[in-house]
């Protein structure tokens, strides 16, 4: 194994982690502020990807598509919050799980209705095509580097938003004491809608970015959603810092596990067996990691005040 290969795999893990962070940040924010578990977050990821694909093919510009993904997912989030989600804040988690599970069915079938069953394909914009040389003689796709950069920018933006702005102050207040903030005269209903739309927009943005790399299809958000759950459980539900750390941890461990486990096993068993068993073991690795972390810290690495 060369250094270049290890570096490339590390970057791959980082890129996966950054994507997961965009999903997990919204989930954890919504839980932290409103105490709501939202299974339909993966559907908003899908909405973003479809919006980007549809607009990009209509206008011929990926960049307009990207903006559309942000806007459409935020709009879908706001509508869903107004129509359904706000009725769920004072319900128990069981009702929230079911209502948002129902939303998944509606979103998935609805999208299939609109766009058909065939996957859509987005092309990577010309500016970000191809690969660049890395130190050590390796090459790496420009687009994946761009995803990492975009994720880092969003993380920084969220940090500034929550730490330095009025909206951020209200969010922090909402996280620590929900009754108090209402008493302070903040319009809490609007705040909730804004936070939900913000989380949705982040998910939609992630969906559009990944859509160009893979394919845009119904159900694409579900595997990501479950990984994002693992991320926020590890990081501590409600904590943005935990989401970032958890996302990077899951991204890197998952990628490195898939890459290294078969190789380690190959020292003991024939290569084709090693590939099969290693693959099976690697797919469970992050769940084992989650179990271990929870065995030590039942509320995750950075548990929020309430959960």
């Amino acid at each position: 194994m060369t250094l270049a290969l290890a570096l490339e795999q590390l970057l791959n893990g980082l890129q996966l982690g950054v994507m997961l962070f965009l999903m997990a940040a919204g989930l954890t924010l919504i839980f932290g502020v409103m105490g709501l578990i939202n299974l339909a977050h993966g559907s908003l990821y899908m909405v973003g990807a479809f919006a980007c694909a549809a607009v990009a093919s209509a206008t011929g510009s990926f960049w307009i598509g990207l903006i559309a993904s942000f806007a459409c997912a935020a709009a879908a989030g706001a509508i869903v919050e107004l129509l359904v989600i706000r009725r769920l804040y004072d319900r128990d988690h069981l009702d929230q799980v079911l209502a948002t599970f129902a939303l998944i069915l509606i979103f998935s079938e609805g999208t299939r209705w609109l766009f058909g069953s065939f996957p859509l394909y987005l092309d990577i914009p010309r500016l970000l095509q191809g690969a660049v040389a890395l130190p050590g003689g390796a090459q790496y796709p420009v687009y994946r580097l761009a995803i990492i950069a975009a994720g880092a920018l969003v993380a920084l933006g969220l940090y500034l938003l929550i730490g330095k702005t009025r909206l951020g102050m209200r969010i922090r207040a909402g996280e620590s004491d929900r009754e108090m903030i209402g008493a302070l005269g903040v319009d809490i209903r609007t705040l909730y809608t804004v936070v939900f739309a913000l989380g949705a927009a982040l998910a939609g943005f992630a969906g559009a970015m990944v859509g160009a790399l893979q394919s845009v299809q119904v159900g694409m958000g579900e595997p990501v959603l479950i990984l994002a759950f693992v991320v926020i459980v590890i990081g501590g539900i409600g904590s943005i810092k935990g989401a970032l750390l958890g996302a990077l941890l899951v991204g890197v461990v998952d990628t490195m596990g898939r890459f290294l486990l078969p190789q380690v096993l190959a020292l003991f068993v024939p290569p084709s067996q090693a590939g099969l068993i290693g693959g099976a073991a690697a797919s469970m690795l992050i769940y084992v990691m989650m179990a271990l972390i929870l065995a030590v810290k039942p509320r995750g690495l950075f548990a929020a005040a309430h959960a």
Binding site: S215, L276, G279
Partner: peptide, 20 residues
């Protein structure tokens, strides 16, 4: 001899292995 996950959509890790 590499086995990928069924339904996998991201092949970055496998492409890195091909390169090396």
């Amino acid at each position: 001899e590499v086995y990928t996950q069924v339904g996998q959509t991201d092949y970055a890790a496998e492409i890195a292995q091909i390169r090396a």
